[in-house]
Design a protein around this nucleic acid. Structure first.
Lengths: 203, 203, 203, 203
DNA sequence: ATCTAAACGAGACGGTACGTCAGGTCTTGGT
DNA sequence: ACCAAGACCTGACGTACCGTCTCGTTTAGAT
């Protein structure tokens, strides 16, 4: 059965998402209340709760809508360059827009005390980005640059682990230099042969 | 002039810390209220606020007091084994005591929306652990196992980055296997020659 | 435009007023907390603060709602009897219902350290009762029982002054005897000549 | 056995009383805390609680110490003038010193929710003043100005009732005019023969 | 053209926890 | 034993958000 009643207002949906992201970036996610979002978006609170389960889900949704086209998935023929490019682009996207870093931190924070959101966040944000990196390693494997994909999850953990660690614990910047270093580290780790043997050509 | 007035009650301090950590572990950090901590510790809420600025600071303090003796700093003569031992011990300490993982997640989450706490957390929790790892690398350098310490911060980022990433994003377990793999990765990356072999050409 | 949003809940309003008065009478105004009123009325604390500024205003409101029909305004044709009847009825209403005296004392006490409440109390409680008495004197003046209304405020002060003084300083009972004596005092003072006679003997 | 240990410090006692009254007058009784009194008096809180049971008792004590000499007990040979003089002096004492009115209001308010203080207040403040007025009526009776003292308590209630009523309910000023009017009313009621006629027996 | 039903704005509702404040008690070292 | 200082426990406060619940209004497709 196709119909019944008034259809969802696209205008409301957009205004809520835009307002949520704007407020989260300018005033800090934690300082923004649902009442504010509703009020600033000219929407009723119920309208928000009808379509999203929590403030976190609204902001995450806004984040995804917003970031849909920002990240580049490079294909240069070199694992090191691919990884460096992808990480560089990822870091950039976060730093460029003021307050975006804060929003990401808040998303991860929120995931810590909301199991439902944690699942959504992992499935719709964390995993897709892991998948992208996995693709880069798979391509490199196909090219023969990488001997085995057995440890690909560990390599991904290293890349994103360092990123999130710096982001969350504020122990260092996310810049092109870091992207380069991580790319080098991972391309070596994934292509080297530890036992001092021939090691063969690395590049 | 040495003092004035009634001295701080050591009993209260201990009971508050113990109660805070116990409640946080058993019922989840977010579900514990200041009123509960005060009440269960037989303390007044004001007494808590007199010495700590927030629930997070209380729990962090309890965490430090508690963890003072838990972590082993190994010295086996081998960087790989030292790192593996340290990480293993760190992971264990988190998994062994029920609920400890949750508390750590909550601490990191809290640091995301409380600047004051973030600073305290980094200085009194994050950095000391980095320092330990730094010591292991410095020893290995002194032994000649590591060629240069230029990238030691990156290696530390890798170790803790992966740990926190798995902890927070729930993308994999923190077990002995991971400790071993990270140790291998880092000892290789840092230029180690496990068995005194030629190391061959690295680049 | 008549409205917008959910209308105020009459049920909540009533339950809050009833609960407030009941608790104040049974347990003593000072021993009742806002949390208790809210909790017992099945209301949120915010709902109380949304419509009243303080506990005192809630109780006063309840008092007015409750006392709307209790006081008799007599019209016997004799000033002395009118005043005696009115005061008697007023005293009775306070003594009959257990705890009511205490509530009145508390209201007056509250007015002493809350300017806003003092104004409300005077305008909505004190003055209406003065007005009633003023009416009795005005009627008597119209009948020729009272020579002039110049000092009517003083007479009113005397009646209520003695009442409140005994109530607050606990220096004597509020009973029918007092009502009679005050009525006599005031009818004499105001120049009444009960039976149109030469003023002569009073009783 | 007369003594033991350090004697009570007269300096402390005075400073506490002075500070309490000063603060109560300048900032309003309700806005003053025990901590403030102690701190401003350079005393410990315990020192206050050692000698007084509550803030109200401290202030009342200060009030009595302060007012010891202020009130005149006139003896002019005329009841009307005696009463007018006494009330006038009483009203003046309250109005002259800024904030004193407020303190009296607060005392009476405090008596409403502290039974112990109520007793102390009545016995040491209310009753002595009643007694003074009683003396005036007794003298007048001895002079033959007053026929009987049967209703002296009512007359006293009228005088102080109007005073407190105006003070507490803010329904009129306490000035010389009021003192005169009350004196007239009471002297008439207590012995006068309003119409020059026989007036006959009152009861 | 009317009917029906869901979505909409507004905003009041029941709750939970917060951080603060004051009261009155207790515990130091010092007089 | 008294004192100043100040930490202690207790308990109420008024505020801030949460997520839910009415209201009357709007907006489409189905009748």
């Amino acid at each position: 059965m196709p119909h019944a009643g008034r259809p969802r207002s696209e205008q409301s949906r957009c205004r809520i998402l835009q307002t949520a992201l704007r407020l989260a970036r300018t005033r800090g996610y934690a300082n923004v209340t649902m009442d504010e979002i509703a009020s600033e978006a000219g929407a009723g609170k119920q309208t928000i709760y009808r379509w999203w389960r929590s403030k976190a889900e609204v902001v995450l949704d806004a984040l995804r809508e917003n970031a849909r086209v920002e990240i580049v998935i490079p294909d240069t023929g070199s694992l090191r360059e691919d990884v460096a490019g992808f990480l560089s682009s990822t870091f950039d996207a976060q730093q460029r827009r003021t307050g975006m870093t804060r929003v990401l931190q808040a998303m991860m924070a929120e995931a810590q005390h909301d199991k439902d959101f944690a699942d959504l966040f992992r499935d719709s944000f964390i995993e897709p980005r892991r998948e992208t990196l996995r693709t880069l390693f798979a391509r490199a494997h196909a090219r023969g640059e990488v001997r085995t994909l057995d440890e690909v999850d560990l390599w991904i953990d290293v890349a994103f682990g360092v990123m999130w660690y710096r982001l969350l614990a504020d122990v260092g910047p996310l810049d092109a230099t870091l992207a380069e270093k991580l790319a080098s580290l991972l391309s070596e780790a994934s292509g080297a042969h530890p036992k001092g043997v021939t090691t063969a050509a690395k590049k």
